[in-house]
């Protein structure tokens, strides 16, 4: 059996079906001659798909079976095109370990819960004063508990942020779709506001600013959790 002719993508482009040239197209690593096909005219199929190109991905979106092109005469192999058969490269070791440990889902609930409770305690304290958690002198226990929750929530947040970024890069190939843009933006905002709230408290800044920042963190982490849920359990 004679060896098949080998084409590069560059060579394939010359067979575009224009000005009397043959029309070749490639799919899944093979090159097919569609010059005589009734479905192709002047190197074009339904005025959308052009000859001289690797159509592997376009075929996956075609309204007809993928093997329609494969029924055309095969004239060679495409050495540098997309292939249907293949193996995905594995994750880097550190990403594999994080994935196996479920690092992001395991760590993300802590800051969400802690910061939400901090915000809630401030709202309760604002609404009902010391009557909900109790107080001693000037110390409102809701506010004291909120401080502890806030500090822990902000302190623990790097774990889900780093593991989330690793997941995003290696599981979702760093895609910047609407959901990920929202998630990344809100994460950045959470960090700024969270660190800001801690700093204002630590350095004795205005109480109203501190409380506003902590309360703002509540809906922020809930929104982050919601988006995380949409990514993990998509409701399309």
């Amino acid at each position: 059996m004679s060896e098949e002719k080998r084409f590069t993508t560059e060579e394939l482009a010359k067979f575009d079906g224009q000005e009397g040239r043959p029309a070749y197209t490639a799919a899944n690593g093979f090159v097919y001659d569609v010059t005589e096909s009734k479905m192709w005219r002047n190197g074009s199929h339904v005025r959308k798909h052009l000859a001289g190109r690797d159509l592997t991905a376009e075929l996956l979106l075609a309204p007809h079976p993928e093997d329609r092109v494969e029924s055309q005469p095969r004239v060679g192999v495409l050495v540098d095109g997309a292939k249907r058969e293949g193996t995905e490269s594995d994750l880097p070791a550190f990403a594999r370990i994080m994935y196996n440990l479920h690092a992001h889902p395991a760590s993300v609930h802590f800051p969400i819960a802690l910061v939400t409770v901090a915000a809630l305690l401030h709202v309760l304290s604002y609404a009902f004063g010391g009557s909900v958690c109790g107080s001693q002198g000037a110390v409102n226990f809701c506010e004291s508990a909120a401080v502890v929750n806030l500090y822990l929530g902000v302190l623990l947040s790097p774990a889900p942020i780093v593991s989330g970024l690793v997941d995003w890069k290696y599981q979702f190939d760093g895609a910047l779709t609407r959901l990920f843009v929202w998630k990344l933006s809100l994460t950045f905002l959470f960090l700024i506001v969270g660190i800001g709230a801690v700093a204002v408290h630590l350095f004795g800044g205005p109480e109203i600013v501190y409380e506003a920042l902590v309360i703002a963190l509540g809906p922020m982490v809930l929104a982050l959790g919601f988006i995380g849920g949409r990514i993990t359990f998509p409701t399309i």
Binding site: A57, A82, R84, G86, E88
Partner: peptide, 14 residues
């Protein structure tokens, strides 16, 4: 399943 992932990647690229 591996091929499904590869198909999806090819679709996204296109």
């Amino acid at each position: 399943e591996e091929q499904h992932a590869l198909k999806l990647k090819a679709i996204i690229k296109y």
